[in-house]
Simulated scan of single mutants.
Amino acid sequence: MTLLQEQLSLVADVTAEERARRLTSAGTAWNERITADAGAAALTYRVIGRGVGSVATEIRAGKHLFLVDEPGALAGDDAAASPVEYALGALVSCQVVVFRLYAQALGLTIDEIEITAEGDLDVRKLFGIDESGRAGFHDVRVRVDITGPDTAEQYEELRRVVDAHCPVLDLFANPVPTSGVLV
Results as ranks from 00 to 15, higher is better:
residue 74 L to Y: 13
residue 88 L to D: 02
residue 55 V to Y: 00
residue 154 Q to D: 15
residue 146 I to F: 00
residue 88 L to R: 00
residue 106 L to F: 09
residue 163 D to L: 06
residue 157 E to F: 05
residue 13 D to W: 01
residue 148 G to Y: 05
residue 120 D to M: 07
residue 21 R to L: 11
residue 112 E to R: 12
residue 132 S to R: 01
residue 54 S to L: 12
residue 160 R to S: 11
residue 180 G to S: 13
residue 36 A to N: 14
residue 129 I to T: 09
residue 83 P to A: 06
residue 48 I to P: 03
residue 77 D to L: 08
residue 11 V to Q: 13
residue 163 D to C: 06
residue 47 V to D: 08
residue 170 D to Y: 06
residue 62 G to K: 05
residue 178 T to Q: 06
residue 124 R to N: 10
residue 150 D to P: 00
residue 71 P to L: 07
residue 147 T to S: 15
residue 25 S to A: 14
residue 27 G to L: 00
residue 45 Y to A: 15
residue 17 E to H: 07
residue 85 E to G: 02
residue 61 A to P: 05
residue 120 D to P: 01
residue 110 I to H: 01
residue 173 A to D: 15
residue 7 Q to F: 12
residue 130 D to H: 02
residue 108 L to A: 04
residue 30 W to Y: 11
residue 111 D to S: 14
residue 141 R to P: 07
residue 82 S to P: 06
residue 42 A to Q: 15
residue 2 T to C: 09
residue 105 A to W: 02
residue 10 L to R: 13
residue 135 A to Q: 11
residue 63 K to I: 08
residue 174 N to C: 11
residue 9 S to K: 09
residue 112 E to T: 15
residue 12 A to I: 05
residue 129 I to N: 02
residue 1 M to C: 13
residue 69 D to M: 00
residue 146 I to A: 07
residue 65 L to P: 01
residue 95 Q to G: 10
residue 80 A to C: 11
residue 137 F to H: 01
residue 84 V to R: 04
residue 45 Y to G: 14
residue 7 Q to W: 08
residue 132 S to G: 10
residue 108 L to Y: 01
residue 144 V to E: 01
residue 72 G to P: 07
residue 165 H to I: 07
residue 87 A to H: 03
residue 148 G to C: 03
residue 47 V to Q: 08
residue 11 V to T: 14
residue 141 R to D: 11
residue 44 T to M: 03
residue 107 G to V: 02
residue 171 L to R: 00
residue 78 D to P: 02
residue 12 A to Y: 03
residue 130 D to R: 06
residue 119 G to L: 09
residue 158 L to V: 07
residue 182 L to G: 10
residue 24 T to N: 14
residue 150 D to A: 12
residue 38 A to R: 09
